[in-house]
Simulated assay, not measured.
Amino acid sequence: MWDIDRVARELTCRATARRAAGRITTEWPELDLARAYTAQDRLVELRVQERAETVVGVKLGLTSEAKQRRMGISAPLTAWVTNGMRLAPGEPLEVASLIHPRVEPEIVFEMAEDLAGPGVTRESAMRAVASVRAGLEVIDSRFVDFSFALPDVVADNASAAAYVVGDMVVGPEALDLAAEPCTLTVDGESVAKATGADVQGHPGEALALAANALGERGHRIKKGSLVLTGGLTDAVFLTPGATVTATFGHLGSVSLSGT
């Protein structure tokens, strides 16, 4: 019989075994959004306990309006990132260590102070930001062909797998984040272009939404943590030997190679 702990352990086992399987909601229709977020917290708790990792930040998923309409939601998903997910700049990712990894470019915030909802606005959220960096996030669904219902992907920690942030550190006051351009390339060939406005109109809006959503669940975004504000473009598959690069207008570039 399914319960919250079984969901978390099933998804943990799939990740460890590098095995995708079917939707949990097919077998347990009672897995609603509230239960899914509880399962997500439990999944991350297991990761901390079993891998001795530390939660170091927050990530957003489904930040584009098109993806939200497709999933029938009106706001992005929130999830967690740990220190064990972080790759150093230039560190390759072994593709076989994951199931079917995809990579997407992100604008990443580092927090100067705690941020907690309710009532957080873009303006108050940005005042809590210490710095901005370029980032790449690796997503890796534990569901076959990335096919899931909304509670499935929430319980799966929004497909979190790995991430890398660039070396360049820029103060938020020096940037027009809505206009910040980004080009995504694979082996030097451009595959997508975007601006910061492709994340909720402004990445600060995504940050505010995350703080308010987490506040409803009794969580906060902590000082010193990272916030991956959501994919600026569609994600591309990472294959052995390929290099994915995000080049920004003012944040520099960041790359990830598959082995």
Rank of each mutant, 00 (worst) to 15 (best):
E137H: 03
A162S: 13
V154D: 08
F143H: 10
R142S: 12
N157P: 01
R142H: 08
L150E: 06
V165C: 14
S147I: 05
V153M: 10
A160Q: 11
G166Y: 01
L175Q: 12
V154L: 13
V144R: 11
V153I: 15
A134M: 11
I139M: 12
M168G: 00
P172A: 08
V169G: 04
D167M: 13
L150F: 03
A149C: 04
S147Q: 14
L136E: 02
P172E: 11
N157I: 14
V144A: 06
D156T: 10
L175V: 13
V154S: 08
I139Y: 08
S147R: 15
A155F: 08
P172Y: 06
D145P: 00
G171F: 10
E137W: 02
R142E: 07
D152I: 03
V165N: 02
V165R: 00
Y163Q: 03
A162T: 00
F143S: 00
A149E: 14
F148W: 13
S141M: 10
L177M: 15
A134E: 08
G166W: 00
V165Q: 01
A155V: 09
Y163A: 07
L150P: 04
V138H: 00
F148I: 08
D140P: 00
V165A: 06
A158Y: 04
S131V: 11
D152K: 04
V170L: 12
A161T: 10
S141R: 11
V154R: 02
M168E: 13
A174Y: 09
V170T: 15
S131H: 06
L177G: 06
G135Q: 08
V132G: 02
S147Y: 02
Y163D: 03
R142K: 12
F148T: 06
D140K: 09
A155D: 03
G166C: 13
E137N: 06
V154A: 14
V169N: 03
E137V: 02
G166T: 07
F143A: 01
A162V: 04
V169I: 15
A160D: 02
D140S: 13
